[in-house]
């Protein structure tokens, strides 16, 4: 009668390696592969450093970059995009203001696209930036941060090539 009873795996072994070591290893390898693919090609966790995108994205806050967001379409005006620097460990987070072929300028904080005033609903304070007109090339976008209280001289803004935009913020 005792021969029919299945031998019980010790409880600590069940916790550490599961009931079957081979199955656990297989699952662990699959999970690792899934995570490598997910966090290299789909979602990139990032932490905001600096105040150029405040109040939308605060210094020190964590977000996820959707690396597929711009894979099949071009960036849209008003969208926050992620721009790669040297590698993937340092990225810019900026809002798209001007699209290819457009002429972008600022007058006393007012964004002007092709001679027309453009509203920026995402801003709480539009600041007082004044910039002469910049005409964008065929694959160029004009980007800037949301924190317009920062003096123009120390704010990173300007034109960026489409190929440097690697994705968008998930949330």
């Amino acid at each position: 009668m005792n021969e029919n009873v299945k031998p019980q795996t010790e409880w600590w072994k069940r916790i550490v390696v599961g009931a079957n070591l081979k199955t656990t290893l297989r699952r662990a390898i699959l999970l690792a592969l899934f995570c490598i693919l997910l966090f290299n090609y789909v979602l990139l966790p990032v932490r905001v450093r600096g105040n150029s995108m405040e109040p939308t994205y605060r210094d020190g806050s964590w977000h996820a970059v959707n690396l597929l967001k711009l894979a099949a379409r071009h960036p849209r005006r008003g969208e926050v995009v992620v721009i790669s620097m040297v590698g993937r460990r340092a990225l810019y987070l900026k809002r798209v203001l001007g699209l290819p072929g457009e002429t972008v300028s600022f007058f006393n904080g007012q964004l002007i696209i092709d001679g027309r005033e453009m509203p920026e609903p995402s801003l709480t304070d539009r600041g007082d930036w004044t910039l002469p007109a910049v005409t964008l090339g065929g694959d160029e976008y004009f980007v800037a941060g949301d924190n317009r209280a920062v003096p123009l001289e120390v704010h990173t803004l300007g034109t960026v090539k489409r190929k440097k935009m690697i994705g968008g913020i998930l949330r």
Binding site: I83, S84, M85, V86, Y92, K94, T130, L131, P132, V134, V143, L152, E153, T156, L157, G158, T159, V160, K164
Partner: peptide
């Protein structure tokens, strides 16, 4: 400097 984001002329 490497300018990934190229600043406008006035800046």
């Amino acid at each position: 400097p490497l300018e990934v984001i190229k600043p406008p002329r006035r800046v």
